[in-house]
């Protein structure tokens, strides 16, 4: 299975290039957009070549989610912890963005490996910010501490105007994704992909993975969710996360996989569509080949003595033509 990386490839490349060519002091100004409508803006001015302004805009949150100050709860603290010492949060952020960070390259660690690790972490900013509330809930599970949200339904935004749901319990956390697709073919493929996905989980070798379920109607856990959040044309997927899935370094991986779950499914749907098209193209090619083989040899038919410039139809053929 191919997972999406949690960092933005372009952001990492830009930061690396910048660090390498810092003396050249050229201006930078890039805008780009990632899946789930995450927008980035990177800017460096000629005057301060070691200061990078990185702005991030998040998907529009649906009404049921908690979004204090335009950010998911706990995001500011998460950013401060992750980038301590090299990053300053600008308040207010730049126009049209939810968060603007000022990175100071002169404060970066000189050690090559640590610097690389920090750059990757900065390039994963979407996960640090958007995944902050999920991370906090899973952390409670890992450390077996009680959070204020215990047994409540928590809605977290992951796509524009769409949320997924988390129900923290003492011994486990249940995560439910309503799956929606725009295109009807995608919906069908995604539905069957998800059913296979759940099936695959049951086969041998994956006993340690989080149990997962798919259902076409909302699971009972969502009975307190708002009605609009409960329509999902590709059904609902629930995962049950146990403490063993979030212990130690596994926490980061679990947060990352859950945060990109929808993108992951839609990526695989596109892959299967590509695969089907490849097969269809091959089929058409082989049919055309067969047709080509069936063509009478042109050179041969020219030599026929009775080759006339018009073709006399038999009565039967004429009849058939008339009716067609």
């Amino acid at each position: 299975m191919i997972l999406l990386q949690s960092h933005s490839r372009f952001l990492l490349q830009t930061l690396l290039n910048r660090l390498r060519d810092i003396e050249k002091g050229v201006e930078l100004d890039y805008h780009w957009v990632e899946f789930d409508d995450i927008r980035y803006h990177v800017q460096v001015s000629m005057k301060n070549p070691h200061l990078v302004l990185l702005s991030l805009s998040l998907p529009t949150p649906p009404p049921e989610t908690d979004f204090p100050g335009g950010l998911p709860s706990g995001a500011v603290e998460a950013v401060k912890v992750a980038y301590a010492g090299v990053v300053q949060i600008l308040d207010p952020p730049r126009d049209g963005f939810n968060l603007t960070l000022k990175l100071n390259f002169s404060k970066f660690p000189p050690n090559e490996d640590r610097r690389q690790a920090l750059l990757v972490k900065i390039a994963s900013v979407r996960e640090i910010v958007l995944g902050a509330p999920l991370r906090a809930l899973l952390k409670h599970l890992a450390t077996k501490t009680i959070s204020s949200d215990m047994d409540q339904l928590v809605a977290l935004v992951h796509r524009p105007n769409e949320s997924f749901f988390v129900i923290p319990r003492v011994d486990k956390v249940i995560v439910v994704f309503p799956m929606r697709f725009k295109d009807s073919i995608d919906t069908v493929l995604a539905t069957s992909f998800l059913q296979e996905f759940v099936q695959a989980r049951r086969t041998a070798g994956l006993n340690n993975a989080p149990p997962c379920l798919w259902s076409s109607s909302p699971p009972l856990e969502l009975n307190k969710a708002p009605v609009e959040a409960l329509s999902a044309n590709a059904g609902f997927v629930s995962f049950v996360i146990f403490p063993r899935h979030v212990e130690g370094r596994k926490l980061d991986r679990t947060v990352s996989s859950l945060s990109t779950f929808h993108a992951y499914v839609s990526y695989h749907v596109k892959c299967s569509e590509g695969f089907m098209h490849t097969r269809m193209r091959r089929r058409v090619e082989s049919l055309i080949e067969a047709l080509d083989r069936a063509k009478p040899d042109v050179a041969e038919s020219k030599n026929l003595a009775n080759n006339r410039s018009f073709k006399r139809l038999s009565l039967k053929e004429a009849h058939a033509n008339y009716h067609s």
Partner: peptide, 20 residues
Amino acid sequence: MERFWQHCIFNYLRCDPEDH
């Protein structure tokens, strides 16, 4: 070519082709 585009879109640009 199709595979190449697939990687360009999902792994390099990391965008959702339905959005652009």
